[in-house]
Amino acid sequence: MEKKDRRYMRPPGIPEKLAYFIRYYEASDLSCGMIAIRCRHSGDLEWKELQQFLATKEPKQAAELFYEQSSGRLVILLDDVSLAQTHYTALAIKEYLQSNEQLAEGICVASYPESGDSMEAILWEMTERLYQTAAMPSAIQVVKGHDHKWERRPRLLLVENDPVIQQILSVRLARHGYEIHLAENGMEGKEKVEQVQPDLVITELTLPVMNGYQLIDWLQQQHETTERCKIMVLTDRRLEEDMSQCFRRGVADFLTKPFSPVELDWRIRRLLVS
């Protein structure tokens, strides 16, 4: 991370007006959609054009904008919207900014209370995600709440040849703030394990070059030198022997495709917490 960015790891001081809104929402029953954008302004510190755009697009939606020039962080609060709705609105905002050549160097969406217990904590998380080097800087990041406090971000390695599954999992798992690494085949998976030292490896069984079983065998042999990481298998293979073979090799969990993403989320969380 650049030195310049490290300054912003602590949330920039929250302006009085923003703090006022935070107190208001936390006290009331309403939810609040939060969008944090890291961008440069085009001379309009009040972002009047953007406000107008939002007003025409969603006339019934109340939106408040807060911009800090020093950090280049724009925070938008949307009254009483869910996370999904916030994300949807952020799509429009991103397109608007891009069409006006105000490049957003990162967008993060969240919603109180879905994304966390306190808006300040959510804001902290959003800022951290925006100012760290993200894997996909142009993508909109989503903050999904979790009740477990991680000491550090869990590192996940996904060994999967199918690009669609890669996309599904990396998008969904990034919401939780996990650090996601990808490998396309068993050999690459092996290299990444050595490089990254993940906490959890999610692997397919039918992989080119070196298949999942061989990778699992190698991983289990590694426990002598490094700390054993947990292994979860997510595979196309639905034969009974595959499940028994995997568990015999000490795999922590076994899921077949097509899978339920929310079930996968829960199983991963359970494995990481224990």
């Binding site: 996370l83 999904a84 994300h87 949807y88 799509l91 991103k94 993508a139 909109i140 989503v142 999904k144 996309q167 599904i168 998008v171 969904r172 919401r175 993403p261 929310v262 989320d265």
Partner: peptide
Amino acid sequence: DYIAYVLSHLD
């Protein structure tokens, strides 16, 4: 981005 939106909120 839209597809990412769909994936994030499928549940």
